[in-house]
Design a protein around this nucleic acid. Structure first.
Lengths: 211, 211
DNA sequence: AGCTATAAGTAACAACTGTTACATTATTCA
DNA sequence: TGAATAATGTAACAGTTGTTACTTATAGCT
């Protein structure tokens, strides 16, 4: 675990804090698709993401989903932070987008380290900052873009995360995450294919032109 | 200023911190409509809202606006927090929705107080928490609601803030904040009037049925 | 190979939202 | 008062998105 810490967080935290993390943190391996947090749950520890990607989803009263953003290496879940600190229920669902490794920190340490380590405070503030900006990005997409632009942006983001320009999702799955219907996605994807931007296959889409 | 501090923040902060705020904070009176923060600006001090309401707006590349949420008594601007700490440009615009009073705290104190006072850290964390939840609410509205429902929600929120069930805006202004067109708003307002939910007048709307 | 389940393609239509154009009403101010 | 300006009402139409229904294609499995 020392190695993972060093690789990902050493530049952020002072040595003493790294040692503490190493002592009280527990390492976790999460398989792709695993549901890590469900809406309404209480969260008892804070994850530091070491590798992989986590997708964060919102749901409305009818059970309709919406993808908010992805967490990646070096990120932590600001929503979890607020849940831990405020002892409130989770407002979001977290699912492993890829296999992921993370370090879990018991919530008791949060307050202690915030008082003790400037680097920890900065990390927490920075996390909030990043998450606010992600949410603003999401709002921009929903409010200002049409569905075809949102779809393209979504595909590029997915391709970036999988690192091979392939999106391993069915049209139905994409429709869920963008909160629209399968037929709409199929229609728009076909247009994108005609424009030479993607190649459509069963269960996956190849992004041919990343720009 | 002591009085304002006591009324609004005394239950949050320890005595020593209140004294410090009183020493370094400067009191500001803001008239309705005043633009407090513009997108792209650097922010050099942090506002504690004592009375009134501030509206927080997002803008896209074409200059189209969208209302994100309102700040009210006891709130601070989490966006400003991140700007101050990270020395980054503002992602949002802030305009006084009503006359407002606030206390400005120089950013240098942020780090110092975060180390020194638990109550300050809690306040900052709580602010982030609240702002994240406001943004989630905003996302819910845009993503899951149709325009008529968004409009009704908007009117109720405005009425709550003005405390007299009157929304002092033109259809055009409402259209800007919801990022749609004047004609759409006029059309939907007329429907709401026919349903007995509002009374339409020139330059203002009376909410007759708050439920 | 042939059956089954799942994924994707497509047409037709409905609903909602956005746009243009113009009429009507209210307010301001010279 | 009367002209100019701003706000609202309304119709007609266009574009986008959502829905239904059905067809076709593909992968997995016996």
């Amino acid at each position: 675990m020392i190695q993972d810490l060093t690789d990902n967080y050493a530049h952020l935290f002072e040595k003493e804090l790294l040692n503490e993390i190493n002592q009280v943190g527990t390492f976790k391996d999460i398989p792709e698709g695993h549901k890590m947090i469900e809406i309404g749950e209480y969260v008892r520890s804070m994850p530091l993401l070491v590798s992989g990607a986590i997708k964060i989803l919102r749901e409305d009263d009818d059970g309709d989903e919406l993808l908010l953003y992805f967490l990646e290496k070096g990120d932590t879940c600001a929503m979890t932070l607020t849940c831990c600190l405020g002892q409130t229920k989770s407002e979001i669902r977290a699912i492993a987008e890829t296999d992921a490794k993370l370090i879990m920190i018991p919530i008791e340490k949060m307050e202690e380290w915030s008082a003790k380590y400037k680097s920890w405070r900065n990390f927490v503030f920075e996390s909030y900052h990043n998450r606010l900006n992600e949410l603003l990005e999401t709002i921009d997409s929903i409010a200002f873009l049409k569905m075809d632009e949102r779809l393209l942006k979504y595909l590029k983001e997915k391709a970036r995360i999988s690192r091979d320009n392939i999106v391993n999702n069915t049209h139905q799955e994409i429709a869920y995450e963008l909160h629209t219907s399968r037929v709409v996605i199929s229609r728009l994807l076909k247009k994108l294919e005609n424009l030479g931007k993607v190649e459509l296959h069963r269960n996956h889409i190849v992004i041919t032109n990343i720009n």
